[in-house]
Design a binder for these strands. Structure first.
Lengths: 172, 172
DNA sequence: CCTATTGCAGATAAAATTTATCCATGATAA
DNA sequence: TTATCATGGATAAATTTTATCTGCAATAGG
């Protein structure tokens, strides 16, 4: 059981974008620089977040990414599912049917109990992830994080965010 | 987020071994046959279960595998950790430190809030897995499963289990 | 003792997935 | 018109997963 590295990058980027003011955007290259990541690869992940309607993208100069909705309404689960896919971690291969003795398919209409137990655990995992929002992450960082690191983050965002001409969604 | 196929095989095998009587064993080849799996690869997984003290192995003819303790005291978590490893699925790469502005390491003594939230979810996952024991799986199968399939499983176990000379652990 | 069966460790290889880079294209602000 | 930026596709490198094989140690049964 393993989560790809993209998840960490995606959450950090989304949290950073939560600090961007109004409908301003931040270029992908700036986000890559903020965390020392490969720009070309990070774009893939940002793209998945866009496809999942977690981020919005604005093309052209002064373009970039911003949150597609309020940070209060973006959970860690949203991000993890966008990056890792919506498939459950445990995939039942129905190997119970592969024995030497062939039994009629009607014997397997009830779902496999093992699968059920594994999926139940995964629901617990997802429920826990759904309890934390991006705004929780940001608030925790502002309150509990080191002031030096927090100030540096704020400065970085202020330096790289780009205001947009006309608003489309929520004007702060 | 993905679990290897070995987990499914391991749980099914362990559940099968839970039906073996007394201190009898069942050869790995028989378990592979029971689920249509590659014998040489399944042995790897059975071995991990042995290393984790979930199974015991007996060498020599009439040898094979059996549970190392009562099915009531083996949880799905035990098996998943034995196969997938004990590392958490989310591994924090501390990319928060990789920004262009270098900050003293003392700013990062507090753990990353994102990591904390992800680990919290994983604890929920593991707690849910720990709630289901092998005996739960077997009992559910006996009560809720199809009688034809259950009878076939019992017959298969009866045909392949091999009694041992002298007992070491629990004589049923 | 001898032999056949079985678990075990290690080397190896095939396949799939993840990670990463590059380039051509389209949008758009200046 | 130009420079900046997101997008999508093609591609490749790296890593992990899956799978097989071989030689070795243990042992029940003759």
């Amino acid at each position: 059981m393993k989560l790809g590295e993209g998840v960490e990058a995606a959450i950090h980027c989304a949290a950073t974008l939560a600090s961007v003011e109004g409908n301003s955007t931040m270029p992908g290259a700036a986000l890559a620089e903020a965390f020392g990541l490969s720009p070309s690869y990070l774009l893939k992940h940002l793209n998945m977040l866009s496809a999942a309607r977690i981020l919005e993208s604005v093309p052209g100069p002064a373009g970039g990414y911003r949150l597609a909705r309020a940070a209060e309404r973006i959970t860690l689960l949203d991000i993890v599912l966008a990056i890792e896919g919506r498939e459950p971690a445990f995939r039942c291969g129905e190997i119970r049917r592969n024995g030497p003795v062939k039994i009629d398919a009607s014997a397997y209409v009830k779902p496999c109990g093992i699968n059920a137990a594994m999926l139940k655990a995964e629901r617990a995992y997802r429920a826990a992830l759904a309890e934390t929002t991006l705004s929780d992450i940001v608030a925790d960082y502002a309150e509990e994080g080191d002031p030096r690191s927090f100030a540096a983050s704020c400065a970085f965002v202020a330096r790289h965010q780009r205001p947009q001409k006309s608003s489309s969604t929520k004007p702060a």
